[in-house]
Design a protein around this nucleic acid. Sequence first.
DNA 1: CTTTGTAGGACGTCCTACGTCCTACGATGG
DNA 2: CCATCGTAGGACGTAGGACGTCCTACAAAG
Lengths: 208, 208
Amino acid sequence: MALITDRDLAPGSPLPTEAQLTADLRTSRGPLREALKALQALGIVEVRHGYGTFVGPATADAMLPWLSFRARSRSALADLLDVRELLEIGLTRRLARSGVPAPVLDELRGCVATMGLGGQRAARADQRFHEIICEAAGNELAKDLVRIFWQAYVDAEQEVGVPRSNPAELAERHDRIVVALVQGDDSGVADTVRRHFDEVRGRLAPER
Amino acid sequence: MALITDRDLAPGSPLPTEAQLTADLRTSRGPLREALKALQALGIVEVRHGYGTFVGPATADAMLPWLSFRARSRSALADLLDVRELLEIGLTRRLARSGVPAPVLDELRGCVATMGLGGQRAARADQRFHEIICEAAGNELAKDLVRIFWQAYVDAEQEVGVPRSNPAELAERHDRIVVALVQGDDSGVADTVRRHFDEVRGRLAPER
DNA sequence: CTTTGTAGGACGTCCTACGTCCTACGATGG
DNA sequence: CCATCGTAGGACGTAGGACGTCCTACAAAG
């Protein structure tokens, strides 16, 4: 990491080869590779077999295994959902306050329409819906985190075995968010998003 | 990871030795150690020299290097601050709505008092202040994330060189949050927290 | 100009040996 | 009988060398 920051290398830049690094850092190949693996696990470097080592994008994807591992239990999953709610309510509120550009609104409506159809496409539309809202916030980190949290949540949901939501209902929940967004009432928006998460939470709750 | 989840091992449980793992997984020691290093980087396992390998706590500390690496630039730092604001506004809002227990209130006031003194202790009190609010939310993940984000932010702040805030002003900002909390007005609370972050953002803004 | 073959470099894995650290247990002395 | 110390064993840490696999780039053939 020090080497990258010192030389001010941008993502994608090639790093010295393992042979050179062992010479520079006065260590042997084993520990060096272990260090590179650790950095790789954090997305800080990217290793391409037979080609070389490069500065990684450091996207939140690196945190996915961590999140998935952490969110194995139902209670931890509830916490994860809670954090998502926190972030998305905040982001959606902002969007409501700053006003929603027309093209964004159109795309949101398109997602809602797709959601009603159910199946694999609906799930993607659901993800896209939340992604659009985060993109509008103009915060790369927030967008990245929400994306990963979404991914970790659906992965864990499948693992734990949570009942699926009704496509029509899913679409309606999101439609209400869109409607509230158009009205620009940020506290009303918060309510619709909260209700959306309430529904998800209800499915997650341990079956009686 | 599969081994841990399959055997349902709790944090702190011992893992098989490297020798046994190489036998179980049909691999040699080098790649095995690289895998363990990657898991260690994510906090999923904990390796103690000369003793053994154990299931790790998987706390958010694993994200600290990642966050620090990512938040090197001023704009990325602003994004980080923004996410903190998002989370803390949400958490504080909830606390306001659910009502603040008296002992929590006392501790918050204690922190504010310490902040006015300045120095190292003030910084710790600042951290503790935010931690208390997150603890009250009863969400381990959120608390963990906010803690790490705080840590990453102050680390980066020192790195980038952001002017320090005035101790008296710092204390006053936090005191206003406490006052708003007592009143239980969640939208008022949001304003005070936002203003607190506005102050931090002001210091972060590129000097003219 | 396109396709194919090849040579070189770089990462991936394996093996062996030795160093360092920690724990547990037994010996020693009070 | 108890507290302290030393030691043996096990487990992780590092070193070095050798070979396999993969990728890229370049040259040769069509």
